[in-house]
Design a protein around this nucleic acid. Structure first.
Length: 120
RNA sequence: CAGCCAGGGCAGGUGAUCGCGGAUGAACAGACGAAAGGGUUCAUACGAGGAAAGUCCGGGCUUCACAGGGCAGGAUGCCGGAUAACGUCCGGUGGAGGCAACUCCCAGACCAGUGCAACAGAAAUAAACCGCCGGGAAACCGGUAAGGGUGGAAAGGCAGUGUAAGAGACUACCGCCGUGCUGGCAACAGGACGGGCACAUGUAAACUCCAUCCGAAGCAAGGCCGAGAAGAAAGCGAUACGGUUGCCCGCCGUGCUUUCAGGUGGGCCGCUUGAGCUUUGUGGCAACACAAAGCCUAGACAGAUGAUCACCCCAGACAUAACCCGGCUUACAGCCUUGACUGCGCU
């Protein structure tokens, strides 16, 4: 991803969970917190409740791909954001398009979305 | 052609665009970092499985422990072979099933000891309920395990002789036990002779006994480089300086350099050339071994295979490497293929 890092440390996840704001829909939960860096950092969490390793890997890839293809929409002019996306059990077996809609829907609820034109 | 048995292989494909991982090569920058390390861009080829899964066995590797012996604990359990090793595999033996091809079996020892055996049944390791026979007027007494009934199991089976009725009491065949013979490396098989069957049942996936094997923990193993902080020693400097109120007393705290050991955050190695794969040949019934030639085939460290579009078909199951191998077990849409057997039809 051009503009973003991935969120890695468990400590960073805990900070976002505790101090960030959260929005949810039926597929995903999104936590957002302003960080002190220049870049966005994206963390993805899929628990074992969702499915086996194959299912979890696929959901992770769909989230990352959805974010990557719409990355410029998430950029904040002021500061970087820590974004944690948690997959919920209903997201098992959804398509890429549903995942992208779901992710952008949550971003809109967070009011961090800009310049997105739905052009399917 | 149908049914059935055994084995082997594949695990959606092709193209375009975007994206990811390490490797190699080139170019750029020498950013970031104390160091160890490492960055950016482009190109090239490569990039999960038959089970990668469960983590149930066995080994390699690493660190620790270890004179030798014994106990405890665990595992295995017909015989021979294969193997680094195994609880795996191969070939046999015995038993069970199938017309057959073939398949299945935790297959040592209950005359070392201990335990357990519900219910039913007269009685369960000890026998007389009915029956049969003899005696007696009867009550009943005695004999009897052939028959009935119960049970997983009732004092070898079956036929005959025999007898009051019966009984290995006696005889043939089968079984059992013992002895030696033949074949086989062996498990075992075959037939011979003897015992007339006594200790008198079953259960070891009951304890146990016997034989064999086993040190412990695991790549978050372990090794290397090593900020910061704290520690030790030596040297330099001073009887000082700083703080507590300006001063005095009192109280509290020490600077710099070098070296050393330990090793946190971090980084690197371990990390993929290996009991490796493919082909051919030789030995072996086989598992497998040996030889020759050729090949290099993921190596991440929050963890890479995805997305979109188009087309095709039989419409794609189960399931994502994490130090590496050999197995086992479990999950699985289907497809291809080889051999054997049985039945039917045709020649």
């Amino acid at each position: 991803m051009v503009y973003s890092e991935s969120l890695k440390k468990n400590k960073d996840f805990q900070i976002v969970y505790q101090k960030g704001t959260s929005q949810a829909n039926r597929h995903l939960v999104m936590y957002v917190l302003e960080n002190q860096h220049k870049e966005n950092r994206l963390g993805i969490s899929v628990s074992k409740k969702v499915g086996n390793s194959v299912v979890r890997h696929r959901i992770t890839r769909l989230i990352r791909e959805s974010y990557r293809l719409n990355e410029e929409c998430f950029l904040s002019p002021v500061t970087g954001l820590d974004i944690v996306v948690v997959a919920r059990p209903l997201s098992k077996g959804i398509t890429f398009w549903e995942m992208q809609d779901s992710l952008l829907h949550l971003a809109k609820k967070h009011h961090i979305l800009k310049g997105f034109h739905r052009d399917r």
